[in-house]
C-alpha cells in the first residue's frame, strides 16, 4: 500500500528479522492450507509487514494483559487484543491467515486496548489494517461478514450518510421489540409524519439520516474514486460496485440538470459550487 508505506520510521525491532524468516508455528487440528490459499497468505503477510502503519502500531509486548482487561470482545469470543498483538508481532503467514478468517472481526473497535497498553501499541489500529487487507484480497470469510452491510454501504457511498430511519424495520430488528421504531408507541403514526414532526428541516426524510445535497454526495464519491476505495470494493463485490456507479451516474445527471435550472442564480456565485463538476 503505497500511500502509507512511508510513515515515520522507527528503529527496527526483533520482529523485522523474524519477518524474513518467520518462525514455523505448527497449529494442531487445523486444515492445511491449499496451495492457492498459501500463496494468498504469503502475499498478505508480506503486505502486512510492509504497511507503514505496521511499524507505527506494533511496538512490542510485555504480555501484561491490560489490553484484554477492558476488551468487550474478549468476554464473548475466543479472542483477545493481546493475542492479536502477539500474532501481529511474532506470528507467521499461516497464523495471520487464520486470524483473518474470523477473529479480526470480533473486535468492537472500541479502543480500550489502546488506552491501556503500557507499551503504546495501537492494537485497534493493527486490527483495522488486517481487516483492510482481508477486504482488499476479497477473502471469502470477509464477504460473509460484510454481507449484512450492503444497504448501509450503498447509502454511504451514494448519499453520504450511513443510516436511515427506515432501516429500523420491525421484522429486521425483531430483537429490539415493538418500540424500536418511533411510530409504534401508543399512537399509530406513519413514519413520514413522525419525521415531519422533527423540528429540523433536513431531517424530515425517511431514506437518509439527513438530506445530503447532491453536490456533497458527489464530492464524497469523488473522494472514494480518488482514494482507491472503489477499486478495493470492486475486488470484494464487483456487482455492488457497478450498481453504485450507476446510481452515482444518475445523481450526476440530476446535478447537471439542476445546474441548468439554477443557471442565473449560480452565475452570481463564486467558489466551489460553480467550479465543481460531478
Amino acid at each position: 500500500m503505497s500511500v502509507v508505506a512511508h510513515l515515520p520510521h522507527r528503529t527496527p525491532t526483533l520482529t523485522d528479522t523474524e519477518a524474513a524468516h518467520p518462525p514455523a508455528l505448527e497449529l494442531t487440528g487445523r486444515r492445511p492450507l491449499t496451495a492457492e490459499e498459501r500463496r494468498t497468505a504469503e502475499t498478505i503477510f508480506g503486505e502486512f509487514r510492509a504497511d507503514g502503519r505496521y511499524r507505527e502500531y506494533v511496538l512490542g509486548c510485555l504480555n501484561c494483559g491490560e489490553c484484554t482487561t477492558g476488551c468487550p470482545a474478549a468476554r464473548f469470543y475466543d479472542f483477545s487484543p493481546r493475542e492479536m498483538l502477539q500474532i501481529a508481532a511474532v506470528g507467521d503467514a499461516t497464523t495471520l491467515w487464520d486470524a483473518m478468517q474470523e477473529k479480526i472481526w470480533a473486535c468492537c473497535q472500541c479502543y480500550t486496548c489502546n488506552m491501556r497498553c503500557r507499551f503504546g501499541n495501537d492494537i485497534a489500529g493493527i486490527i483495522s489494517v488486517m481487516r483492510e487487507l482481508s477486504v482488499r484480497h476479497g477473502l471469502e470469510s470477509t464477504r460473509r461478514v460484510l454481507a449484512p452491510f450492503n444497504r448501509s454501504l450503498t447509502l454511504l457511498m451514494t448519499v453520504g450518510t450511513q443510516v436511515a430511519s427506515d432501516m429500523i424495520q420491525p421484522d429486521f430488528f425483531r430483537d429490539w421489540g415493538p418500540f424500536a421504531a418511533a411510530g409504534e408507541k401508543s399512537w399509530d403514526a406513519d413514519p413520514h409524519l413522525l419525521r415531519q414532526a422533527i423540528p429540523i428541516d433536513v431531517l424530515q426524510t425517511t431514506t437518509s439520516s439527513w438530506e445530503v445535497s447532491v453536490q456533497t454526495s458527489l464530492e464524497l464519491f469523488r473522494i472514494y474514486e480518488e482514494a482507491g476505495v472503489l477499486d478495493m470494493l470492486r475486488g470484494l463485490d464487483p456487482d455492488l460496485t457497478e450498481m453504485l456507479i450507476d446510481i452515482i451516474e444518475e445523481r450526476r445527471e440530476e446535478f447537471e440538470e439542476a445546474r441548468t435550472r439554477y443557471h442565473s442564480q449560480l452565475a452570481a456565485m463564486h467558489g466551489p459550487v460553480a467550479t465543481f463538476s460531478g
Binding site: 502509507v4 483495522s128 481487516r131 452491510f149 454501504l153 450511513q162 464524497l220 473522494i223
Partner: peptide, 15 residues
Amino acid sequence: TAWNYHGTATSNPVA
C-alpha cells in the same frame, strides 16, 4: 464514514 470503516474496513486512511 467512520462507522463504516470501523465496521467493515471498506475504506482507507486517505479516504
